[in-house]
């Protein structure tokens, strides 16, 4: 019995290892203060952007241009091929981007699992981080990066961002059970990131601003 208990403790320790390592180097922010900027992907004055895009779905790649446009109550997004054919168009409502509407999806791509994966991947990009009593804020040793963790509808969202500019460097959505989505953002040009790399299961999307 003693051996079994030791094994159990060891297994629990191993299971906890990824969680303890994930936030290593970050300490809880006791009093963040008003100087801490909010996590931002698209700045409030963002209007629109074009991205050269490579979308890999289960090993097959389609390429083209993605247009993202801020509208009154959300974001419009469309992907067109280089020769001009539209692959898909979605509308992501502000405040509930995961309830996006598929305005058009080309017949060969019009499959529910695929649409769901695209909506969840891009929805995370347009989601605003929550700042409430449940939100946990941590900061790294050099105080150059903040980690914000908030939870919503069975998902845990992690935002790694610059405490001064608010620019988000990485976004992660973990669902239990469910597919993990990770987005890396860099090369911000005033109002939006210049590079966006999305990974979600067998889907990867590479967007480079034009």
């Amino acid at each position: 019995m003693k051996i079994k208990l030791a094994h159990l403790i060891m297994l629990l320790g191993l299971a906890m290892l990824p969680f303890s390592c994930r936030f290593s180097g970050y300490t809880t922010m006791v009093n963040p203060g008003s100087k801490l900027s909010k996590a931002t992907v698209f700045s409030p004055d963002f209007l629109k952007a074009l991205y050269k895009t490579e979308l890999t779905l289960h090993g097959r790649t389609i390429t083209g241009i993605i247009v993202i446009k801020k509208v009154e109550n959300g974001y419009q997004m469309a992907m067109v091929s280089e020769v001009g054919l539209k692959y898909f168009e979605f509308f992501f409502p502000e405040g509930s981007p995961f309830n996006a509407q598929a305005k058009y999806v080309m017949a060969v791509l019009d499959r529910e699992p695929l649409k769901e994966a695209l909506i969840n991947s891009f929805g995370l990009l347009f989601r605003e981080a929550n700042y409430n009593s449940q939100t946990r804020l941590k900061i790294n040793e050099s105080e150059t990066k903040v980690l914000l963790i908030d939870r919503e509808k069975g998902s845990r969202f992690s935002y790694y961002y610059n405490p001064i500019s608010g620019e988000v460097g990485q976004l992660i959505q973990n669902r239990f059970p469910g597919t993990r989505t990770s987005i890396k953002l860099s090369n911000y040009k005033n109002d939006a990131p210049g590079s966006i790399l999305v990974y979600r299961g067998k889907i990867s999307i590479n967007l480079q601003r034009l």
Binding site: K48, I65, V67, K69, Q76, A78, V80, G84, K86
Partner: peptide
């Protein structure tokens, strides 16, 4: 000269 006209965008995408 290729011009893509999208209903969602006032501007034309030109290649």
């Amino acid at each position: 000269v290729q011009e893509k006209h999208l209903n969602m965008l006032e501007e034309v995408l030109t290649s």
